[in-house]
Design a protein around this nucleic acid. Sequence first.
DNA 1: AAGCTGTAAGCAAACGTTTGCATATGACTT
DNA 2: AAGTCATATGCAAACGTTTGCTTACAGCTT
Lengths: 360, 360
Amino acid sequence: MGAVEHGANVCISKRAVEGRSKGKEMAKYTTLKDVAQKAGTTIGTVSYVLNGNGERYISEETRRKVMEAAEELHYIRDKGASSLKGGHRRLIGILIPQFENQFFTRIVMAAEAVFVKHGYDMIITNTLDDPEREKSIIRRMLEQRVDGIIVTPTAKGAENTELARSVGMKMVVVDRPLEGVNDYYWVTTNNYGCGFKGIEYLMSMGHRKIGYIGWNSGILDLAAREKAALDAAGDKAMVYVENGEFSAAEGGRLTRKILEEHPDITALFYGFNIQAQGGVNELRRMGLTIGRDISVMLIGTPMWTYTGLNDFSRLDMGDFELGKTAAQVLLDQIQGKPMQPKQYIHDCSVIEGDSVLKIN
Amino acid sequence: MGAVEHGANVCISKRAVEGRSKGKEMAKYTTLKDVAQKAGTTIGTVSYVLNGNGERYISEETRRKVMEAAEELHYIRDKGASSLKGGHRRLIGILIPQFENQFFTRIVMAAEAVFVKHGYDMIITNTLDDPEREKSIIRRMLEQRVDGIIVTPTAKGAENTELARSVGMKMVVVDRPLEGVNDYYWVTTNNYGCGFKGIEYLMSMGHRKIGYIGWNSGILDLAAREKAALDAAGDKAMVYVENGEFSAAEGGRLTRKILEEHPDITALFYGFNIQAQGGVNELRRMGLTIGRDISVMLIGTPMWTYTGLNDFSRLDMGDFELGKTAAQVLLDQIQGKPMQPKQYIHDCSVIEGDSVLKIN
DNA sequence: AAGCTGTAAGCAAACGTTTGCATATGACTT
DNA sequence: AAGTCATATGCAAACGTTTGCTTACAGCTT
């Protein structure tokens, strides 16, 4: 086929033409009434046949006629209308910082698998770490009458989720905490443990001068990674710290800076994978071979590490596990299982690769 | 803060306790009626104050009382209920193959920016290229009464979108076509042009023995990349083709295979970035330096190429542009602008990097 | 004094669904 | 023959909104 120019198609359906004359026209759906009419019965009966879950007697004859009519008329139930009378909308709201970060897309994919299996749809949005945006998104999700929310909050998350909590919305917080709030469901990684294990591993490989590069997030729980790194080093090793913004470019800049200031550093520990990406680029541009001239330890499993060059040593955060747990905990709440707000803390595990050289 | 063990929190809100006794309990929302009661007025008036767009006289006094009552009672309008009476739900459905593919997340992010600005929410789902899943997702989106759908269809997309088209749902197809259907809005890349330009560029750099690695998608428009590659080569160059599945591992396997069978190949052209990822890994494992021992050309701008090692020569597909256009075209339809089904074809452009060596 | 006009707010129908209640028939018990 | 089932269906209220229609009053013009 010659795909370059097909030429715009001029065929327009009859419906479109009618619509245009009236200005904005909307999709037209068949209603229960239409189906009832065609099947020669009443709305109530049709409702029972198509969506009913009570125990009501319906003859085979009627059932068949209703089914046929619904099929022919392309009946599609209006979930908004049905949720008016009690019942769930089967809709979940998800707020993550950014789609571009694999850590979050993995969480979402894992959660999605659970939700799809249970017949739930998801409204997914990037907050881009903007609290204003987070606030308005949450409000909009409530307006859509979602059955529950999964959120990785911004720094103002506690305040922004207040409205949701005030109406009793089911909620699961993932990764970052809701600071200042205490009775909520929280699925997260053991950030402190993560930082601790990272330094522990580097020390076990003989490193004593280590650079830690992190993010000034304003989120206490994330800062725990840094604190843990220092605690793990104790007086057995020296950990130099550089914090900056959450971007690849910044990671590169901090990497150059820390190595200039402390040329005796033998290993770098990156707390955040976006920064690590820029950092690793920078190291390679500087002509250093990772795992030989300099050792590198990461937190997380970003896509850019799949380059065939290094099989990076890192702390696996169990991304998929987090998403799966979050979805399961939210569903349990929605389905009314007796349970209490609680923290589900997943431990990190060290994955040994080739980016850390054993010295001495 | 010591983040390791906080100990599960035992504080439970009163609401939670009440809820538990009744088994599954739902979020309880304030209604217009509640607000009207508190403000000492009627439902209709409240509706006008809070959401009305008609021209109705409301005194400042009443407006103030209503606003206050709504605020105090945390009123949140039910969009499902409001959309019953005409009106839009301000909800868009988006179907993409996979979140893990940056090409699609970029499209979604660009579209999201447009939708958020106009106050629309999005239901986003991965089809995972599974037609069954695609079909049920589309049905569910219709049940949620989305105002429009953006879809990158699977191979059975034409059939699966039939229901949506039959109810007059606004729709924009992105990237892959709807085969066999002809009056639809399609925002896509010029796949043929992409393939053509890639080979053209390689030839301009002196390459005459080129390997093309692609995907047996069953989607004709994607196969145009391969056809274009062959057309561009004509009798001036030799293009060897290997097709396989859509995975990184397969990309690696095909790379090894094609080089074994045709050791005189000087450049590889990857039609799909997932395969390229595995292919590039394989090349590096084989000890080849890209841009020196072997030349590589990609289509797209995947995240894994940001490694600081190669600045890959590639065909930019204008990912963000596609998403932006798709969202804009869908909104135009929803807002009833007079328009006709049409194809919006974005051209690819060659981005020159360092992965293609100039020879002879 | 009748008729406008401008301002303000109440009333109730309608949207598409679910579901408790009532009705209707035939068959089986006592 | 009256009573009780089991089966099958109809009816209408309710859910939370929106919006056209009505009412009410006050200040104008003729």
